[in-house]
């Protein structure tokens, strides 16, 4: 268990993440909200990012763009990603 508890929405995004990327040995509630998702941390890569972006557009109805500056921030952690989705979601 991580020291910090996830908000309900963060937990939802964490579930989507684990499901989409088939992270079999990770439980959604175990993801540390501030930990980096890519490279170190969860160790996701560019393929995972693409899959995640596609899943997000399917589930929340908005397209993630490849704008570099923004993505560095958005993909930084589960918390940042959740905040970004919450801000842009259509449904």
């Amino acid at each position: 268990m991580s020291l910090e508890a996830l908000s309900p929405f963060e937990l939802e995004v964490a579930r989507l993440l684990v499901e989409t990327l088939h992270l079999e040995d990770i439980k959604p509630e175990d993801i540390a909200p501030e930990e980096p998702l890519f490279n170190e941390g969860l160790g996701l890569d560019s393929i995972d990012a693409l899959e995640l972006a596609l899943a997000i557009s399917k589930n929340y109805g908005f397209q993630m763009r490849s704008d570099e500056q923004q993505n560095q921030r958005v993909f930084a952690s589960l918390r940042a990603l959740s905040a970004h989705i919450a801000e842009h979601r259509v449904h």
Partner: peptide, 13 residues
């Protein structure tokens, strides 16, 4: 350019 999570997103776009 390769590198960063957005690379393949860019390719897909």
């Amino acid at each position: 350019p390769v590198g960063g999570p957005e690379t393949l997103l860019k390719v897909q776009e």
